[in-house]
Design a protein around this nucleic acid. Structure first.
Length: 524
RNA sequence: GCGCUCAUAGUUCAACGGAUAGAAUAGAGGUUUGCGGAACCUCCGAUGACAGUUCAAUUCUGUCUGAGCGCACCA
């Protein structure tokens, strides 16, 4: 009974809409309006509107609506975060892919975005590695390439970690080295600096390979003095308190955990250093509306607390401006990666494997294979929600059909190929061609019109997978269209429409992939 | 013990209070020798359990089950 009444009511609404001529004023103008069970009014976008959009897209003009976090229109995205003397593994690869696309999406909706990267170059992990490196000066001299040096460091890190676990004497020694690094002891500094440089060179190669770069590299080693100072201030003003020889934040009254900022030896912990970092990040580039930290979810307690302390220190500067984008892990299907188990999958290695498979399957040249490999790997991460863990399967991640980057790029290349064959200019549509427009064409054009909405939603929700899923859906629809409708062999009026559609499809795929930080190729 | 995530076809993912729960992959079978078949089509197959809120629940709430993670001097 109620459902019937709803439909009746909607009919009244519809009548009213028509009577009041509201329909005429709709933007975009509606082609038709109809009532559908169980209670919807559907508005159909007019051909005129769709066609004008089609012309825009054919010219690569995309008008994304603006989205800002505040009046400065300025955002920092902090991502990548590899630690020196450790491997850049597939988790980092997901991180950097996510961070890079978030940057590009936020830029597309009108923000000035600063790319930053906070790297752990001090701490126990460095001490463990240097412990093993210390007596291998001769071996070090023989290492020439970045790749050799990286492998060497990886081996040393494993060795140091093992020694730390099984040999109490080694453990003691490593803790001593750790303190030496903090004290900038001249005995260890040259070694620390040299190996640190090796790591950073290696990271640079990776960044370049996946088309990322940073406006500022921050290092943990920069922040222990300033971090300590800020903690002391916070202690004075009662935000932090002393407890069992350490300086801590007591989170109880805020329903948060209690965490240590300065340990009982007087060293700042990760938390302590973070306060120094925040101060710097919020002043290096003027006023920020938002600082988005792209970091795994196990840090959520850590961020809740440091954000709280920062807010208590300076409400105006920090409140509601810090954001933890908890992108999730890449787990192996067999379980979690860990250096202890020795099942870490290195990022560049994964790209290499994918590349091999692409060369083998498609016989393409090295340059093309490289673009496709990076695209495949990035896309396999980005097509999923950032906040969900990925169950990583090597075979599947290097898959090149189905919902994959090669499929999207293939569709793009196919469009380009058609456009190349048609040497003439792609024309504008007349009223005559508008009349000849069929349902197949209109369906695709309706999909085009969603692109700006999707990008806007991706910006608001920080969800690049919306864009990935959208372009996949578009590519797939175009391929169906292509299968059923001849383009170059159609008669003149229809051919015009279909060429424009082909061009718009190619442009949207290219732009969409670009927002994901993925390159396209012209032939493959 | 307290807290935070998550649970959808065999598998990997979509669906952000609305319409017939979409894809990919795996499996089975196809595409009048057509602009790129790296494509396209058909079939097969799913909401962890029990309550509640709602005109309407995969979506919100509660309990349970299962998985992951975090809660004091690592990062």
């Amino acid at each position: 009974m109620i459902k019937d009444q709803v439909l009746k009511a909607l009919n009244e609404v519809l009548k009213k809409l028509t009577v009041d001529n509201i329909v005429v004023d709709l933007q975009p103008p509606a082609e038709k309006i109809e009532i559908v069970k169980p209670g919807f009014i559907n508005f159909w976008i007019s051909k005129v509107q769709l066609t004008s959009q089609l012309h825009e897209y054919a010219k690569e003009k995309f008008d994304f609506s603006k989205y800002h976090f505040g009046p400065n229109k300025k955002v920092m995205v902090e991502f990548a975060h590899p630690n020196t003397l450790k491997l850049f593994h597939i988790g980092h690869l997901r991180n950097i892919s996510t961070g890079e696309t978030v940057v590009r999406i936020l830029e597309a909706v009108g923000n000035k975005v600063i790319r930053s990267n906070y790297q752990g170059d001090v701490g126990l992990h460095t001490a463990k590695c240097l412990y093993a490196v210390r007596n291998k000066k001769l071996e070090m001299k023989k290492l020439k390439t970045t790749s050799d040096k990286t492998k060497f460091i990886g081996k040393m890190y494993t060795e140091g970690t093992r020694a730390y676990e099984v040999d109490p004497k080694a453990k003691e020694e490593i803790l001593k080295i750790n303190k030496m690094i903090y004290d900038r002891d001249l005995e260890i500094m040259p070694l620390w600096e040299e190996t640190r440089k090796w790591s950073l060179d290696y990271f640079d190669e990776v960044y370049k390979r996946v088309y990322s770069h940073f406006d500022r590299l921050y290092f943990e080693s920069e922040f222990y003095e300033r971090g300590t100072e800020v903690c002391m201030q916070a202690l004075k003003s009662g935000i932090l308190e002393k407890s069992q020889g350490a300086i801590v934040f007591n989170g109880k009254k805020y329903g948060l955990d209690t965490r240590v900022f300065i340990n009982s030896l007087g060293f700042p912990t990760y938390e302590g250093k973070e306060l120094g970092l925040a101060e710097k990040e919020f002043s290096d580039f003027g006023e920020l509306d938002k600082n988005i930290h792209c970091v795994t979810p196990e840090q959520s307690s850590f961020f809740k607390i440091t954000f709280k302390v920062e807010e208590l220190l300076n409400e105006k500067k920090y409140k509601n401006k810090q954001y933890h984008l908890a992108y999730n892990w890449v787990n192996l299907k067999e379980g979690k990666m860990s250096s202890r188990v020795g099942n870490i999958i290195e990022g560049p290695w994964l790209i290499d494997e994918t590349k091999k498979k692409i060369v083998e399957k498609f016989k393409c040249d090295d340059e093309t294979a490289e673009v496709l490999a990076v695209a495949s790997v990035k896309y396999s991460f980005l097509k999923q929600s950032v906040t969900d863990a990925i169950a990583f399967d090597l075979e599947e991640s290097i898959a090149v059909d189905g919902n994959s980057a090669p499929y999207l790029i293939y569709t793009y290349v196919r469009c380009q190929s058609i456009l190349r064959r048609h040497s003439g200019r792609v024309p504008s549509l007349s009223a005559q061609s508008l009349a000849r427009m069929g349902e197949n064409e209109l369906n695709l054009m309706r999909k085009f019109s969603k692109f700006p909405e999707v990008v806007n939603k991706a910006a608001i929700d920080l969800s690049p997978n919306d864009i990935a899923n959208y372009i996949y859906d578009l590519a797939s629809s175009y391929n169906v269209f292509y299968q059923k409708n001849p383009i170059l062999k159609a008669d003149e009026e229809i051919k015009k429409i279909r060429l424009l559609i082909t061009l718009a499809t190619a442009n949207i795929i290219k732009k969409g992939l670009d927002l994901l930080g993925i390159k396209t190729v012209e032939r493959m």
